[in-house]
Write a protein that binds this DNA or RNA. Structure first.
Lengths: 330, 330
DNA sequence: AATGTTTCCGCAAATGTTTGCGGAAATGTT
DNA sequence: AACATTTCCGCAAACATTTGCGGAAACATT
């Protein structure tokens, strides 16, 4: 890079000490208005910008948040990141974004990188199989502001910001029952994800409570393709009057299957999903969904981070409530 | 944060000087194998990690790339970012991601932030209306490795990595003609985007050349909603046997309109779009598209950056070729 | 025994900024 | 005139690291 202005260079020009320049630029009361003016003028002229590294070295804090997600290319994370970035910038922070690829080792490397970078705080959606869950604890105990979101560890005293997974699944179940559906195929994601387990438990619990005689058929799919095959295989021999999808990914596979099977929605089969809202609107008829907004969750997360940085360091679990958004698929 | 190990603390423990510790840890030949071993052992024990800020202050380079996009929540940028992050990590770099919100002022602020952070390089997709295009030049002249992608400025001597916008539009036009379409509605994005202009010019040029008597009807839409309205208004009075969509955003609106109008695809109207590939696959029938891959573009961009950092600083324009992916919408 | 070479390590400066402390000059108070 | 207070500013240390230079010891060469 080119010649960069420093406090030293400014001080040399004005015959003032470095400390005076530093203080003048930050409106320290010790400095007279007159010299403040002169310093600021020259600083502007020379396009002075404080050297972030020197500042961080001195103060030992940076204005960067670390954000770790399994993948960026995901509608949910993407909107989450977008929300966090927006507000982080307003607070004068920027974002260092890392992908773990849902791999525990990479995740740990990323955490280490955050530590090395002396980030001001970390947002993390943990991987499916954390090899060393105790590591999170270490970061917390070390005083690192750490906000877990979406997929969170089973640690009690930590900050978590989650979609209302149980509530969303409950709303879904209640809605399905309200429409008087009887033969229900429910497709969930990877069984090992905490999010899957939570949603499934709440879903089944609601059925047990509200309609004990009704037992939805549960299937698991790791991908759109699997979901598609599950539906096709199922309908080859049996029928269902409703398909519940745990996520966009599953919905996409299910919709492709209904195309291929020639099923009319909602007359042949009704559909309900849990989603951010974007994908359900692409289909015709548009799919009714229980909203879990990555964007709103992001807003909550950055808010929690800001509060934490302002001294409210006690751990807290925040749940982003879910609402039903009616499409035409029920 | 907790007690952090520093060179000084290690040196105190071992009764060696700081410089010896520093050299031992980086295998400097001046240091004997014996002390190297001792130093490394203690460093590992104390979980020593070099202070990034001190290192950067001394060396004046960081291992961070800045990446500026209009928005993160966009399938194209998202996959671009994903690709860049993957390879950046392999090279030992991380990513600072900034959104400009397609606002020139915010974009300049973000550039400034990159400069302040002393990033090793910048990837930028510029906003629609750069208020001060000369600023880019300033960064380039200052020696900042700068890679423009997707929407790029009209500067000659700079590094650009672009989808083959012209080629993509040409392929689209050729395909439409191949299917013998006669009444063509072509919907493009915002007229002021360089990407729109490039695609439109190539599209029209191909028609002029290959089928001079055929003139597609051109419309512009800034959003899915607008595209939807355009189609509905158009079909209220006229007919078309093909709709060309410049982007996913437009495709989405068009598809909603076809649902509402009850148009069968491809019998009533055929559809072709330019896309990353994700969205076209969601519809039934799946939409034929000309691929412009954000992921592949990202790989190209980071490659160019790596080369630049390795001394190949002369400017270069790289085009990511386009291919036709056949769906069932033609 | 004197000189040259190698091996191994430390001194100190430098990077740019922040900040506690102290101090000179100017002003105000008896 | 003597003292106290205020105003304004500089000194120097500190943050953690890197690196040119030099130097002491050990060894090898005449």
């Amino acid at each position: 890079m080119s010649q960069t202005a420093t406090l030293k260079k400014i001080s040399a020009q004005l015959n003032l000490s470095i400390s005076t320049i530093s203080r003048a630029l930050k409106n320290h009361p010790d400095i007279s208005e007159n010299t403040k003016r002169k310093v600021k003028e020259l600083a502007a002229l020379m396009e002075y910008e404080p050297n972030t590294y020197a500042v961080n070295l001195r103060t030992n804090v940076s204005r960067i948040f670390g954000l770790i997600v399994p993948v960026i290319s995901n509608l949910f994370y993407e909107s989450f990141i977008s929300a966090v970035e927006e507000d982080a910038r307003k607070l004068g922070y920027s974002l260092m974004i890392l992908q773990s690829g849902n791999d525990s080792i990479t995740e740990i490397e990323n955490l280490k990188l955050c530590k090395q970078t002396r980030v001001a705080g970390i947002f993390i959606c943990i991987s499916t199989h954390p090899a060393h869950p105790e590591i999170y604890q270490r970061y917390i105990e070390a005083g690192m502001p750490l906000i877990f979101f979406d997929n969170v560890p089973d640690i009690d005293s930590c900050n978590k910001v989650c979609p209302a997974d149980e509530e969303a699944a409950t709303i879904a179940a209640v809605t399905i029952l309200k429409y008087n559906k009887k033969k229900i195929l429910a497709i969930f994601g990877n069984d090992e994800l905490s999010i899957t387990r939570k949603r499934m438990a709440a879903f089944l619990k609601t059925f047990e409570k509200e309609a004990p005689k009704l037992t939805p058929l549960i299937k698991h799919a790791d991908s759109s393709l699997q979901a598609r095959q599950i539906v096709k295989e199922f309908f080859a021999s049996k029928k269902a009057d409703h398909i519940f999808c745990m996520s966009d990914e599953i919905l996409i596979g299910v919709m492709q299957a209904t195309y291929e099977l020639g099923l009319k929605i909602p007359t042949d089969v009704s559909i309900l999903t849990i989603s951010n809202g974007f994908i359900p609107g692409l289909f015709n008829p548009s799919i009714t969904y229980v909203e879990t907004s990555g964007y709103k969750l992001g807003k909550l997360a950055i808010k929690r981070m800001a509060d934490h940085l302002n001294g409210q360091t006690m751990s807290q679990v925040i749940i982003q409530p879910s609402i039903l958004v009616e499409g035409a698929s029920m």
